[in-house]
Design a protein around this nucleic acid. Sequence first.
RNA 1: GCGGGUGUAGCUCAACGGUAGAGCUCCAGCCUUCCAAGCUGGCUGUACGGGUUCGAUUCCCGUCACCCGCUCCA
Length: 533
Amino acid sequence: MNANDFPVTLDALSALCKRRGFIFQSSEIYGGINGFWDYGPLGAELKRNIREAWWKAMVREREDVVGLDAAIIMHPRVWEASGHVGGFSDPMQSCRRCRKMFRADQVADQLRESAWLSSWTNAAASATQTDVKWDIEKAFRWLERKGSTEAPGLVARLAEAGGGRPTAEALKTLLESWNRSPETRPCPACGGELTPPRDFNLMFRTFIGALEDSSSQAYLRPETAQGIFANYLNVLDTGRVKVPFGIAQIGKAFRNEINPRNYTFRSREFEQMELEFFVRPGSDAEWHAYWVEERLKWYRSIGLPEGRLSRYVYAPNELAHYASACTDVMYRFPFGDQELEGIAARGDFDLRRHQEFSGKSMEYFDAEKNERYIPHVIEPSAGVDRIALAALCEAYREEWVPKEGGGEPKTAEPGRPPPAGYEPRTVLRLAPVLAPIKVAVFPLLKNRPELVEKSRAVYQPLRRRWSAFWDQTGAIGRRYRRQDEIGTPWCLTIDFQTLEDDTVTLRDRDTLRQERLPIAALGERIAAGLGEV
RNA sequence: GCGGGUGUAGCUCAACGGUAGAGCUCCAGCCUUCCAAGCUGGCUGUACGGGUUCGAUUCCCGUCACCCGCUCCA
């Protein structure tokens, strides 16, 4: 890689993606809608290539993994079992000062355990034999003494209410308000003002049938994984599978993210590629390590280099209570190291929960070992859109290329004009397997019918096999540049020699080199370049 | 979600309380024997809604979107 750590900005990349038809903002003609993206003709091909590379590596080439395509909307009980409804469907309050989030129904409990509040209560309570009363004066003195360190949010709030500095009067008003309406209670962490309870469930809700009431409420799946767990028994019964085995699925998932950012990186609608790999309890660690390596290998195979990939290993206190290990595959985006995929060892949590909620036994009988158990699961879960974005970031280059051909491109130095004899180009150096268009076919000149006709004849059989493109517009150099910008690895040019001996020139996107080869050899040459042989 | 900023053609940018312009791109034609050449012609725009005004792209308000920071991301 060149010296510049992040040679591409998201601005430059998103401009190219829009200009060339990779990615559009959803509903753009109506002003756009935050958190949703549409993939144009080239983006659709790119994503399809990513999915196919994954499916090939995870399902087709393996004997121990089968595929699945489950519905997006599932029985609402699925999300109770998974834990998505319950902990996260309750209204939340966040502190306007320290920004911490609290479940509204837990604020009272958390206040009882709050350090600043007990300190304050102890200082302000004036106990008689029959009653405990708050002494405003004492309370105010505590605030003046310890408030700014122990409850800065509360002090700030009183100062605001008191017109610059805290007053006993403002305190009295505040205490009365807390007694009147519990929703105005202070932040358990800092004493600041909490927002009113708001719904922070990140699942999109919908209704089944025409009646919109609570009994018909359903959710768009926030992850594809549950479709796999819910079908575990079906696949076990019909798929002729034996532990260890996996079920793989690709599909859309939806999360009502509070604040989508970084182009397509965090979207509200996104596509996941998930594998649930079921193993014998006790072999979790071994299989987890295996899948981390497998997945990293796959990322390298689609052109993401070792140097930009990393793994984030969760510390024990970061793990969900049921997980024994989790490793994220990270990619160095222009906006920092971010997760492409999480590989988690989830134990038997999911199957056990579904057993509990559905009443169906999830036990597996292991005939070889003659034992019965609920399999443990290793879950590699990847985001298609994130991988597409990483591939685009990785591929995007601004280069200087020699004007007359013959010579290697150089990496452009940002903000400087190219040296004499060179001109700039933008190129996507996508791995050929991901390139939306594999090969472009040009007649050298468009006003020579024999060249045009011949080029069509070369093009037709190629497009039946690969995504191919034919173009006769403009000078040949311009057509090469256009293909460079969308990542087409090879361009074929039909010239006058072709008419004599049925050979064409094949121009390489990355090296700019041309080789002349017989039309009959094209199929093999391109297949080899794609690693298909 | 909070604070700040920004919205004019596909892109980069002009202009103006009274007919919105350039370069590049794109399309068509001519030309062109391998890396964005040239000539001719053409398409396309004031984010959306409301207000003020004789008249609003311009001023005001709201909404939406985008950017930056914070937050959030099971």
